[in-house]
Simulated assay, not measured.
Amino acid sequence: MRNWIFAYGRCICPGGHIADKAVFLTIAQSLSIFKIEKLAENGRTVEPGLRFEPGVVSHPVPYRTSITPRSEKHGELIRRAEMDYP
């Protein structure tokens, strides 16, 4: 399915490779700065279920998670970036 996004043959999107690399870099940068954890409720960690909404394009059912900076240094980096790029 992923290969169909940018078409193929003579009609292929010339920016497809750049878009793939940009998405990869964005995800890698986010994972390097943020700590993403399962949410704890009532002292117990809640395991999100593996459920999807029906449709032509299936999406996972929304679930709760905790996203925090990995350290105070990472938090300061995020705050500075917000000031430079609001």
Rank of each mutant, 00 (worst) to 15 (best):
I33L: 11
G75Q: 14
L31M: 07
E76G: 07
Y8S: 10
R44E: 08
E82F: 01
R80A: 02
C11V: 09
R80T: 06
A22T: 02
I5K: 07
V61S: 02
L31S: 05
L39V: 14
F34Y: 06
D20R: 13
S30R: 11
E72M: 07
F52Q: 06
R51K: 14
Q29H: 15
T26H: 05
A81G: 12
Y85M: 04
N42W: 03
A81H: 05
C13W: 02
V57S: 00
R2S: 01
S32P: 00
F52N: 06
P48N: 08
R80G: 05
K35W: 00
C11G: 11
I33C: 01
Q29Y: 13
D20F: 12
G49W: 07
N42Q: 03
E82W: 10
S71Y: 01
V56K: 08
P60T: 00
S30P: 08
I33Q: 10
E47W: 01
D20E: 14
W4M: 15
M1Q: 07
R44G: 12
Y63V: 14
I67W: 10
E37W: 08
Y85Q: 10
A81E: 05
L39E: 13
R70N: 06
I12L: 13
F6V: 03
R64E: 01
S32V: 05
I12K: 14
D84E: 02
P54T: 07
E37N: 00
P14W: 14
V57D: 00
H74M: 15
K35T: 08
N42S: 12
G15T: 07
L39N: 04
E47N: 11
R2V: 13
P86S: 05
T26M: 13
L77I: 14
D84F: 09
R70D: 09
V57C: 01
F6N: 02
Y85C: 00
T68M: 12
E76Q: 12
Q29K: 15
P54N: 12
N42F: 11
S58P: 07
W4K: 15
P86R: 01
H59Y: 10
